[in-house]
């Protein structure tokens, strides 16, 4: 793979340690690869395996989950739940043809801006080597058409979630 490939890394950062660590890197004006896209969650234990697969499916080349160090979780042991899920998701990646290194869990405290920068840089480089996860021929065209169906699918999913909408669902006329 050519190394001018710019991967997208979606990162789930816990509010109390890792997001603070990322902010600290910012305050220290520490440059790191622009490939990371951060989603703030209250706890790494909020990360549902569905989110990981959704990220991969929708275009992420790598997924990073960052939480508080074991024992330092703001919610006592949410990060342990994250570790448990991560270990199991890892075991499923091969079947999907997703390389192990595309998913990484690490612990970043609020003070570890250096480690944060290091983890993001390593992850970006590794995924850059691995290349794009999904086919991206003719990216503009393909992305757009995929995008609309994806949005449709997801809107359908959202609609199911909103009971109001589902009760409004069209009732089939009886006979005709």
């Amino acid at each position: 793979m050519t190394n001018d490939f710019e991967p997208i890394i979606v990162g789930f950062l816990c509010n109390w340690c890792s997001y603070e660590g990322a902010d600290a890197a910012g305050r220290a004006r520490q440059c790191y690869p622009s490939n990371l896209r951060v989603i703030r969650v209250m706890c790494s234990g909020r990360v549902d395996p569905q989110f990981v697969f959704q990220a991969f499916k929708q275009g992420a080349d790598g997924v990073l989950i960052l939480g508080c160090h074991p024992g330092d979780c703001h919610y006592k042991d949410g990060n342990r739940q994250a570790l448990k899920r991560y270990t199991l998701i890892k075991s499923m990646l091969d079947a999907f043809g997703i390389e192990q290194d595309r998913l990484r869990l690490d612990w970043i405290s609020a003070a570890e801006q250096e480690k944060f920068v290091q983890v993001v840089s390593e992850m970006t480089e590794r995924v850059r080597q691995l290349g794009p996860l999904m086919p991206r021929a003719n990216p503009l065209k393909k992305l757009d058409s995929n995008r609309s169906t994806r949005i449709e699918n997801d809107m359908r999913f959202l609609q199911r979630k909103h009971k109001k909408i589902s009760t409004k669902a069209r009732k089939i006329e009886s006979t005709k």
Binding site: P49, P70, R85, L88, I89, M92
Partner: peptide
């Protein structure tokens, strides 16, 4: 409310694993 049965299964079984 579940989009992906397999991913949720992973969540379910992970929560049962007895170790840190």
């Amino acid at each position: 409310n579940v989009r992906d049965q397999g991913a949720k299964s992973a969540s379910l079984l992970a929560s049962l694993m007895e170790s840190t």
